[in-house]
Amino acid sequence: MSELQMRVSDEDRERTAQRLQRAFSEGRLTHLELEDRLEIALTAKTYGDLLGLITDLPDEQPPVSDVIELESKNGHLKRSGDWAVPRRLRVTSKYGSVELDLSEAVVIHPVVDIELDLTYGSAKIILPEGGVANVDAFQSDWGHAATGDVPSRPRPGALYVVVSGRTKYGGLTVRYPRKRWFTH
């Protein structure tokens, strides 16, 4: 029996369905094509059935790691620009500050968990416009946790960041990017 004739699992069907949905969101498939292919993907019996649905799509990029750990004893930890955000980010900093700018980052997960372990430092998280953040699980002994005008409840289609952890003497600020004013 060839590999194409082998039976697929529910996980194989779901993985193909997710790939088709990504292709639709990238503009590679029309809504009708997506519906037709999803119907076949969810009822596929063999790898050959699934392969026929994705052969005209480009190969996928390697997946972003599920968990990334960043650590610093006394330096400034900063991520900004075009960087890949994992589903779970663990950040440890004893004396330094942390700045995580998600406004231009590649975020493929609808929910991102950020766990902060800060002793004397503070953290700033910059969300893309429309993103939301829940900081209820973050504790600050002698500091603050400020979210300003950033909502904390999940919203359909919006990035949802859940911040947990603690700081002894620092604080946490979650905000949107600063508006740039141009003069002519």
Rank of each mutant, 00 (worst) to 15 (best):
D36H: 02
D36E: 05
D36P: 00
D36Q: 03
R37V: 03
R37T: 03
E39D: 06
E39V: 00
I40K: 02
I40D: 00
I40R: 01
I40N: 00
A41Y: 00
A41F: 00
A41Q: 01
L42D: 01
L42Q: 02
L42A: 02
L42P: 02
T43G: 07
T43S: 09
A44D: 01
A44H: 01
A44V: 00
K45W: 04
Y47N: 04
Y47W: 11
G48Q: 03
D49E: 12
D49C: 07
D49W: 05
D49L: 07
L50K: 00
L50R: 00
L51N: 02
L51W: 01
G52Q: 12
G52T: 09
G52D: 11
I54P: 02
T55I: 12
D56T: 10
L57A: 12
L57N: 11
L57K: 10
P58N: 10
D59A: 13
E60Y: 04
Q61I: 08
Q61D: 14
Q61N: 12
Q61S: 11
Q61K: 13
Q61P: 09
P62Q: 09
P62H: 06
P63N: 05
P63Q: 08
P63I: 06
P63D: 05
P63F: 05
V64W: 03
V64F: 05
V64R: 04
V64Y: 03
V64P: 03
V64D: 02
S65R: 15
S65E: 15
S65L: 15
S65F: 14
S65D: 15
D66R: 12
D66S: 10
I68T: 15
I68P: 08
I68L: 15
I68D: 13
I68N: 12
E69D: 11
L70H: 04
E71M: 13
E71H: 12
S72V: 07
S72G: 11
S72A: 13
N74M: 08
N74K: 07
G75Y: 06
G75P: 03
G75R: 08
G75E: 10
H76W: 13
H76C: 07
H76R: 12
L77Q: 07
K78P: 05
K78W: 08
R79P: 03
R79Q: 09
R79T: 06
S80G: 14
S80Y: 15
G81S: 09
G81T: 13
D82L: 06
W83F: 11
W83C: 08
A84K: 07
A84E: 11
A84T: 05
A84D: 10
V85C: 14
P86H: 14
R87K: 11
R87S: 09
R88S: 15
R90H: 15
R90N: 15
V91Q: 11
V91Y: 10
T92K: 15
T92N: 13
T92V: 10
T92L: 11
T92H: 13
T92Y: 11
S93N: 15
S93L: 13
K94T: 13
